[in-house]
């Protein structure tokens, strides 16, 4: 997991003073040098690799063998790109991603926005690990939502596709109310500070010309803050990868595939391997 790319800051908020933060337990500094180049420095002063994509600065403590995953929609004209900003959560970075992949909690945690009783049923959907790209994908996920997006007025059945291209990142494709032929893109980029602490950087690429930027930010912050109190109260704090500790159902197939994929790659930073 050390060779993967992780988000470490917002590109728009870089300053020469640098942001003191951490990556997987190691203190790092994210800043801009005199020439205006973005620099990420590790604990012992070594220079770490840098990518600037999707509004964020990305880095790695190791030597990434793959390029940062692609989000083709990030280059699509007409979309608005929204930096939602950081929120710190006392939880495993993997639990933060898993929660993002879940729709069954919408009626209880995002009540009257992303879900509402009695519309609690999760219909069957498709999950696969796409071997060619080595990503987890869930498709045809449908859920009734009272207010699916800031641009939505009234309830609709929303369709979702979920994609996990990196152990602490997920990309969500979602029905786009103003443009039915396109998908809105909402991502969750998670910076693992420690196994039980993370900075979460949501980001969006939307077709929505009418909602103010601030409204879009506030909508997504609302959703994430509703999740935060869940994430800080799961026991154990680390994500159990072995079966037996937690009980999945058919609605949890995305999470089952995500855990299997993590285990297969030995992506275990933030995971608990043996049931305790």
């Amino acid at each position: 997991m050390i060779d993967e790319w992780y988000p470490v800051g917002l590109f728009s908020q870089l300053d020469p003073a640098g942001r003191q933060t951490a990556l997987m337990g190691e203190p790092i500094t994210v800043g801009r040098d005199a020439e205006g180049n973005t620099r990420v420095t590790g604990g012992n002063g070594r220079t770490l690799p840098v990518r600037l994509r999707y509004g964020h600065v990305w880095s790695s403590l190791g030597e990434p063998k793959k390029e940062l995953f692609a989000i083709p929609e990030a280059d699509q004209p007409g979309r608005r790109f929204v930096d939602v900003g950081v929120v710190r959560v006392r939880c495993s970075p993997l639990r933060a991603v898993e929660n993002f992949l879940d729709v069954a909690h919408f009626p209880f945690v995002h009540t009257d926005i992303l879900g509402a009783e009695p519309h609690t049923e999760v219909q069957n959907y498709k999950v696969e690990i796409r071997e060619d790209v080595d990503e987890v994908w869930a498709t045809q996920v449908k859920f009734y939502q009272p207010q699916a997006a800031k641009s939505a007025s009234g309830g609709i059945t929303t369709e979702y596709m979920y994609r996990v291209p990196a152990p602490t990142c997920s990309v969500l494709y979602k029905t786009c109310p103003p443009r039915p032929s396109e998908w809105d893109v909402i991502t969750l980029f998670v910076q693992p500070l420690a196994e039980d602490l993370c900075d979460v950087w949501p980001w969006m690429a939307l077709f929505d010309d009418t909602t103010s930027l601030t409204d879009l930010i506030h909508f997504q912050q609302t959703i994430f803050l509703q999740d935060r109190s869940i994430l800080e109260n799961q026991i154990p704090c680390l994500l159990p990868l072995d079966p037996g500790m937690e009980i999945p159902t058919r609605a949890d197939l995305t999470s089952v595939a995500y855990r299997r994929w993590l285990k297969r790659h030995n992506y275990t930073y933030g995971a608990q391997l043996v049931a305790q």
Binding site: I230, N233, Q234, I235, P236, P240, M245, E246, I247, P248
Partner: peptide, 12 residues
């Protein structure tokens, strides 16, 4: 104080 599904505290 733990839901066996996802470990959430039931006291919440």
């Amino acid at each position: 104080d733990r839901c066996p599904h996802r470990g959430m505290r039931l006291s919440h």
